[in-house]
Nucleic acid binder design. Structure first.
Lengths: 241, 241
DNA sequence: GTCTATAGTCGGATAGAC
DNA sequence: GTCTATCCGACTATAGAC
């Protein structure tokens, strides 16, 4: 579809305010993340998105050229957002970058790094009262039912993240980061990180948590830490067939 | 909504064939599982469902009273299906029922049971070329965005399953099945079991699997077995803050 | 740039023939 | 019980006023 007027710079903090043209644009994307995330592409209506953004339906056509392109613009926006997250992770790991890549980082240290990494991720998810983290829903939907949007997000950011996870797991398990088992575990780990979002409903019903209070959050944090620590266990074969 | 003509017996193998009246009904439900699962409630159109079922749109109104009630009927159908699965699991565990409930089953044995349980679940998911297991998508969607359908499925079957999982994990970790950590792990474990379905897209892209061949399946099976075996590790605290 | 008005499409429900 | 025909509402997109 006509892609000409879609891609543009949207640095988060535009130092030049008063510029109304991509202010509306930002509000539309913001609203679209939320509505597309909760309703899916078909379920979301441009009317709703425009209303939430406090603007008119036709501005969607003006700024993006239609619902479909708005959807893709949202994907690019999310890709950027995850990309910044991954940048943060890389900064966190900067000191050990070489040893991680070589696989010479001792397992115990790698575990601590991975725990810290996940801990930060988790804390952001757990505090998602306000907008900004509804993108997880969008990603989850795309993961289940991939469209071009998934490819954009995946290629731009998730792939990088998975590489880092694989390298860390490789250090922990003393296996090459390229090995199939390690990479599979990286994908599954990423899936788990997203799952906390998706599984709220089940968790609430089964554990009787209306909302996540501090006790609940600490229980989850502890479970996550254990999960990571367990990666240290590398049983050669665990037969059961 | 008018619920009068919805609930009815639909034992899977109706010994009396030739009865066309709930044959159409079955085909409609079958088709609806597939279309609702892949498209979501809003995305699914009754026209499509009817076409896939090889019948007419208006038969949906006739048999179920509308799209919404068809959706709920699908939920009940899925609840029954999972319920049968759980029956199977309980049969599998029948011999050790008492020891599991008491928590006196030795961890190593509990691990083997849980591995076998998951293995069977997994093999069904991994062989889902044909219809019948598209219900996982339906459940995943409902888990992410719960409606009344989720409550029906949850109350009728998932809750039972989670109890069993919690009891087994309790045995493995020598903790009471009612403890918060154990129950949380049970929920997360169930989430992982469903996730294999959802994460196909990501797995395919990252691991370069177009489709799951035998190598891929064995890698996944091994990863799952390890995952279960790791539950044995019960580190008191794995500090990282 | 943002709005109103409207065209054109599609989906769910229903009436009525058979 | 199943089909055809039709109504009505909701949606996307677009033209044009300002």
């Amino acid at each position: 579809m006509s892609q000409n007027l879609v891609q543009q710079n949207n640095l988060d903090d535009t130092p030049l305010s008063e510029k109304a043209f991509d202010d509306t644009r930002q509000r539309l994307i913001q609203a679209a993340v939320s509505v597309f995330g909760s309703q899916g592409f078909e379920g979301a209506s441009t009317r709703r998105i425009a209303a939430l953004a406090g603007t008119n339906i036709s501005s969607i056509a003006y700024h993006f050229g239609g619902k479909e392109n708005l959807y893709l613009a949202v994907a690019d926006h999310i890709a950027q957002e995850i990309g910044q997250k991954v940048d943060g992770v890389e900064a966190l790991l900067a000191n050990e970058r070489e040893r991680i890549r070589n696989g010479t980082l001792p397992p115990a240290e790698a575990v601590v790094l991975l725990q810290r990494l996940w801990r930060e991720w988790l804390d952001e998810l757990l505090s998602n009262k306000e907008p900004g983290y509804e993108w997880t829903w969008f990603v989850i939907r795309e993961q289940a039912n991939p469209t071009e949007a998934f490819d954009r997000i995946y290629n731009a950011s998730i792939s990088r993240f998975l590489c880092i996870l694989a390298e860390l797991i490789g250090c922990i398990q003393q296996s090459p980061a390229q090995s199939l088992t390690v990479r599979l575990q990286a994908v599954l780990l990423f899936g788990k990180m997203l799952s906390f979002e998706r599984e709220h409903a089940a968790v609430e019903r089964y554990l009787g948590w209306k909302t996540l209070d501090e006790t609940a959050k600490n229980t989850i944090r502890a479970a996550v830490n254990e999960e990571v620590a367990r990666l240290l266990v590398r049983s050669e074969e665990t037969l059961s067939c």
